[in-house]
Design a protein around this nucleic acid. Structure first.
Length: 98
DNA sequence: GACCTGACTCAAC
DNA sequence: AGTTGAGCCAGGT
């Protein structure tokens, strides 16, 4: 399984209404320092088959997104995630190791 | 294999 | 509180 594949798998198991940080994803796939690579992997996927909009930065910001952070935030709010001033207020979902 | 890029993170100023 | 620099990683050139 490729690195990005693992990243996608991790993203897919984020429940609706929950968000995970890039670090959490990286940690879940076994590379705690690979947050950057995680973002890179999602970048290739972009508007594809995984809920990439549920992946956020460690500081609560949305980070980059194809349709802009605003749109991403809107989607998250629609799913029940509390967001304030462009930052996620609710608790973030912690992924577990595979 | 080296170099550059990028949806990242942390610590220091 | 916003900016800067250094660290890490996968992918593409």
């Amino acid at each position: 399984m490729d690195f990005k594949q693992r990243v996608f798998e991790a993203c897919k198991r984020i429940p609706k209404g929950r968000v995970a940080t890039y670090s959490a994803i990286a940690r879940a796939i076994g590379n705690p320092k690979a947050a950057r690579a995680v973002g890179n992997a999602l970048d290739k996927n972009r508007s594809s088959l995984v809920p990439c909009h549920r992946v956020i930065r460690s500081d609560g910001r949305a980070g980059g997104f194809a349709h802009g952070t605003k749109e991403k935030i809107r989607l998250l709010r629609k799913e029940g995630v509390k967001i304030r001033n462009g930052k996620v207020q609710g608790k973030r979902f912690e992924l577990l190791n595979p």
